[in-house]
Amino acid sequence: MKTKLLTLLLAVGLLSACAEMNPHPMDMNLAVQTAKTKADHEALAEHYEEAAKDMQLKVEEHKKLLSQYQSKGFRQSKILKDHCQRLINAYEKAVQENLSMATLHRQM
């Protein structure tokens, strides 16, 4: 039973880690190069805020996984916990960077 649960948790963790983080719904290079109006920069700011929301969902998802790993006595739990913590840190940084970009575009 523990083996099946571990396999399931690993599969979910790997699938979520390998999922595309945030495919850009717009050509970001073109959008940034051609942004001239307040509306253009507002659209970019909204894009970055949406990306930040997506990253925050990933943070919460991995915090839940980390909690599960911490409550279980899996032999591989240190590896799993470390993996989740690294992802949490990366996603939290991505949240902050995206919010920072949104702020900068709103100031333009």
Rank of each mutant, 00 (worst) to 15 (best):
K2M: 11
T3N: 11
K4S: 13
K4Y: 14
L5C: 07
L6Y: 14
L6S: 06
T7R: 11
T7K: 15
L8W: 06
L9V: 05
L9H: 02
L10E: 13
A11R: 10
A11L: 15
G13W: 00
S16I: 00
S16G: 06
S16K: 10
S16A: 12
A17R: 15
C18M: 13
A19L: 09
A19N: 01
E20Q: 13
N22H: 14
P23S: 00
P23A: 10
H24C: 07
M26T: 13
M28N: 04
M28Y: 04
L30N: 14
L30K: 15
V32I: 15
Q33F: 00
T34L: 09
K36Q: 15
K36S: 13
K36L: 09
T37Q: 06
H41C: 09
E42T: 14
A43Y: 02
L44R: 01
L44N: 04
E46H: 14
H47K: 06
H47D: 06
E49K: 14
E49G: 01
E49C: 02
E50L: 14
E50G: 15
A51R: 04
A51I: 08
A51F: 00
D54A: 15
D54T: 09
Q56G: 02
K58G: 08
E61L: 10
H62Q: 04
H62E: 02
K64L: 03
L65A: 11
S67P: 01
Q68E: 11
Y69K: 04
K72G: 05
F74S: 03
R75T: 15
Q76Y: 00
S77M: 06
S77F: 05
K78N: 14
K78F: 06
K78C: 10
I79R: 02
K81C: 10
K81S: 01
D82R: 08
D82M: 05
H83R: 08
C84Y: 04
Q85A: 11
Q85N: 06
R86T: 07
R86F: 07
R86Q: 12
N89D: 12
A90T: 06
Y91K: 03
Y91I: 03
K93G: 03
V95K: 02
E97Q: 12
L99G: 02
M101Q: 15
A102P: 05
A102C: 06
R106W: 11
R106E: 04
Q107T: 13
